[in-house]
Structure formats: structure tokens, C-alpha cells
Amino acid sequence: MDHGFKNGTRIFFAVDFDAVDDQITANVLPHFKGINDAMADSGNPYEIGVYGSRDVCARVGAAGYSTASFLADMSSGYVGNAGHQLPDDWAYDQFVIRTLGSGDAQLDIDIDIASGRDTGQGSFNPPRPAVPDVALDRSHLPALRADLSRYMQSIGYPDMGGIGSDAKLYSNSQAVDALQDQDELITRLSNTYGMRKALIQTAVYWAMREYGLADQAADQKVVGYHLSGSGTVKDSHTGIAEISGTDAIQAWNHCIGWGYTTGKHLDAGKDADIWSVWQRLNKDNAFTVRTVALIHLWDVRGRPGGRLPPGDRVTTPRTMRLGLAEFEITELLRRYRAWDPDQEAQTHQSLAVYQLFEKYNSIARNA
């Protein structure tokens, strides 16, 4: 709908790997059942197609989950292609790569043949405009919790706790509930700054699910440094969004300077200022949520003073807006976690969390 695809268009959902029989049974068929259920919930605006090996396409079609197949026949080494017949419902067959041009202008393209079963779409509706976010529908919270739980478990995060030094201190439900407590503020910040709520929600949710015993120990060292002069740890990533006092000060200073917010400029090199802001981050969830929004505004301008890896290639997003492209969202999520040594893997994992929050925000704002 956002891109103007008309009702009745067939969308080919991809299985872009060589899924063997047990994977098709355990993963692919339930995935396509979910697609069918979701499409039915939306009033069946689009036809459902499947892209994949011959075996994948045949089995998805036989289960009644697709109405046409787009075959990945070019992958001749796929187990799912070898010895399998062309499905009767094939619409497109991707069978060979051809090279066009030469030198710097050389381009490899996939060649397809068409049966005529599907004719694509030659005209489009006007794209659906980006609209502001609204309050999250509380009736959707159980489904949101369940979706987040399933995804986080799939990447190794149990709903509760953990073992030993890897133990995490916030559960899936605690993280969702903390966000819901701040939903009015998050909605207001989203509307004020033209920022998708999911950017704020993802930063907080991911930080809470990551916060563990080691982080708690670092926080205790910060308290010891400022209250009793013990140790050398004067700052840490703390609170429900794991923000350091230093980063918070820089983000607030940046946004005060650009007129995004008001306040007093503080000194990120001054212990008293770090401690003052750190305590608020540690105890005041509303202050932390505001700071998340300001960090995203700081990040969109390149995060001066940020700690990106040496030689890192940075793609600068456009100014903050509701219609940022996925690569721009990915860049902002990466910059938010610029201090983390596992930032690349976690950026892509947190993008999936962003997409889950955006799913439910989209349902609410387009209701």
C-alpha cells in the first residue's frame, strides 16, 4: 500500500536458500501459513506467490498457501531443484545469468521466462503518505509481547534471566511494560521530531534485554567513584536505554544548539556534570526516553564525537523524517550502539525488533 501496489497484485514471498524437506516442513510452511493468515486479516488485498526452489514452490503450492511460483532454477546445485519437476503453477522461471556490457559498465542480470500466469503490474495507485504515529493500541500488547518473545528466543535471548555472567536482568514483559508506561511521551516525541516511535522503542527494548550482571557491576563502580572516590570508573551505559552520561551530555548539547530542545549546556569532561546526568539516566525513565530521541537526532547529523570504528564507511541519513528508508533506519540503529564491540551483528538483530514495533505502530496509525 505504501508503494501504491493495487489490490489483486501477486506478491512473491522469497525462500532464498536451498531449503531441504525438514526445513520446509518446520519453517517454510509455517511461515507461509502466517503470510496467509496475515493477508486474510487484511481482507486479502493481494495474491500470494512463492519464490524458491522447485521443491519449495511445489510444497507451498500443494499446501494451498500460494497461487503461483517464481522458480530459482538458476541455482542448479540446489537439492530442492535436482530431480524435481517444474510445478504446474509456475509463473516465472529464473534460469541463467547473462552479462551485459564490459569493464566498469559490466552488469550481470538474471534471465527469466514467463508462462503468462502472472502479468505483473503496469500501473500504480498514489503511494500511501507517511502519517504520524499515535498511541499504541493496548489490545495489541499481548501479540506484540509474543512476537518479540519468539524473535528474541530465536537469537538466543530467553524471556527471563539467563545463566552466570551472561544473565540478563530484564524480561521480555518488563521491557514491553516499561515502554508502554512511556508510550504517551514516546508518541509526543515522535510527533515533535518527525521520528518513528519504533526508533525510540527499539533502543529502549534492546538495551533492557541486553542489560546484565556485568552492566550492573559497572554501574556500581560509577557510584563508588563519585560517592566515595573509589576506583576509576566515572561513567557507564546505564538506565533503561543504556546511555552513558558523556553521550547524553553531548546529545543534549547538540540538540540545544540546533533548537530541538532547551536546557543548559553541560561539560562532558567534568565529573560533576557526568554524575548529575548519569543519575538521571539511571533513575528517571522519562528523562532517558527523551535522551534516546535526542541521540537519534544527534546521530542523523553524523554523531560528532561518536566512537565509530576507525576507517568506518558512514552513510549519512537524510534529516529526520517519518519516511526514512530501511538503510537509513539501519544506520541510525548502528550509530546508537556505536560504543558496542558487537555492533554490526546487533544492529541487524535490532532492525528486526524495529520492524516488529513498526508493525504494531503501523496498525495503530492506519486504523
Rank of each mutant, 00 (worst) to 15 (best):
R59L: 05
G212D: 01
E328A: 01
P127M: 04
M320Q: 10
R313A: 11
V353W: 02
D18G: 14
T67R: 05
I186L: 13
D235Y: 02
G259P: 02
A72C: 09
C57K: 03
S139I: 10
K283E: 14
G43Q: 09
K6S: 09
I256Y: 05
V292I: 10
D235T: 02
Q216M: 07
D159V: 13
I200G: 09
L297T: 12
D183G: 04
A272Q: 15
T316D: 01
C57R: 02
G61W: 01
V289H: 06
M320V: 13
D104H: 09
P158T: 14
G77P: 00
S244Q: 03
L266N: 02
E242P: 01
P30E: 14
S350W: 03
G83Q: 06
K283A: 12
T291P: 06
P129K: 03
Y193S: 04
A26V: 13
V60C: 02
T261M: 09
R365K: 09
D312W: 12
G103R: 08
V289C: 04
H140A: 10
G306R: 06
D271L: 07
N125W: 00
I256C: 05
N191T: 08
D235W: 02
L308R: 01
W252V: 05
L266Y: 09
S190R: 03
Q343F: 10
R98P: 05
S173N: 09
G212S: 00
R280G: 05
D166W: 09
F13G: 01
A338I: 07
L332P: 05
Q216A: 05
N253F: 10
A114N: 10
K359G: 06
Q220G: 04
V353E: 06
L322Q: 04
P129L: 08
Y211N: 02
G101I: 10
L29K: 12
D159S: 13
P30F: 10
W252T: 02
I11A: 09
P310H: 07
D183P: 02
L322T: 00
N191P: 05
L199G: 03
G77V: 00
Y65F: 14
W275I: 02
M320W: 08
H140G: 06
G311N: 00
G116I: 04
V131T: 15
A338Q: 14
R117A: 13
A338H: 14
L185F: 06
F17H: 10
G156R: 04
I155A: 12
R138F: 11
Q349P: 04
G323E: 14
A135E: 13
G120H: 08
H140N: 10
T347W: 03
Q201V: 07
P87D: 03
V79A: 15
P309N: 11
S244N: 00
V60K: 01
A40P: 04
Y157L: 14
V50A: 07
Y354N: 04
L29T: 14
G323L: 11
S228K: 10
G323W: 07
F17A: 08
A218C: 08
D271Y: 07
A338W: 11
D133S: 05
E242D: 06
L100E: 15
A175W: 05
G245V: 02
Y46M: 13
A105Q: 15
Y92D: 04
Y260L: 03
N36L: 11
N36S: 14
D273I: 06
G80W: 06
E326T: 13
R117C: 00
R188H: 08
K33E: 15
S171P: 11
I363K: 13
P158W: 15
G229Y: 10
H237I: 02
W258Q: 15
D93C: 10
A14K: 11
G269D: 08
